[in-house]
Write a protein that binds this DNA or RNA. Sequence first.
DNA 1: CTGAACCTTCACCTATAGTGGAATGTCAAG
DNA 2: CTTGACATTCCACTATAGGTGAAGGTTCAG
Lengths: 129, 129
Amino acid sequence: MRIGEAAAASGMSTKTLRFYEDRGLLPAARRAPNGYRDYGDETVTRLDFIHRGRNAGLTLAQIGDILRVRDAGQAPCIHVRDLLARQLRGIDRQISELVALRATIAQYHDTVAAADPVDCDPESVCSYL
Amino acid sequence: MRIGEAAAASGMSTKTLRFYEDRGLLPAARRAPNGYRDYGDETVTRLDFIHRGRNAGLTLAQIGDILRVRDAGQAPCIHVRDLLARQLRGIDRQISELVALRATIAQYHDTVAAADPVDCDPESVCSYL
DNA sequence: CTGAACCTTCACCTATAGTGGAATGTCAAG
DNA sequence: CTTGACATTCCACTATAGGTGAAGGTTCAG
């Protein structure tokens, strides 16, 4: 698969794929005889993982750490295990922050929804927004 | 409470507090006769909320939206309700991304932890990190 | 009276995550 | 055999977020 196809399949630009390679999120791609990058299907899977990580608010650096650990696969040392444990704790913390925040916002929402919602003038700027 | 105390109480710099005021996350502070900002305890609570939001991965803009809606309190219009509903959906999406990611990472972690973890040479750079 | 803490304004900084553009190479279709 | 779509590298530039620094001036406690 050429870079354009991989980009299309993952909803990213070719620029972005080369950029990810440069940042170590994608391994240096196999090359066709003409020098073009030649990707396998696993690259699209990997790009989806990156995409999900981004959506979840992880930085490229964090995602890169995880991917590199996963790539290691065999012969994991104790430091790798600890890195993953730290990532898990960080994500757990982030999830519980979000859940708490969600509860707070849900409460505001319920209060607002319970009151008879007055439709304000759509022409004027809503003073709360 | 002066800005320095509020900053210390919330673990931020005075610069940051003025910056938040500028961005609308803090209301324009009451002023002492000498022109110094004079904060009440609720400001520290508010700063903590901002802090938690940041930790959860929300942007200042998102946090600001929530705070402004909360500040509105009375007379909420339909747009406010919709904004809150959108925020909730966004946060739900973010949470589910994180939960999915957590599962994936937990799986890597378990695999690694199951293997007999060899401690690698602490002097050399770990090739996976 | 001096120094720490405050005020404003404006510029600048660092990181993150890309994007644009130039100059060039490859290749399939017409 | 050229034209157009797609590819290559490399360097510069952009946008956004979230601040920080510096200049120049006031206020106040010791």
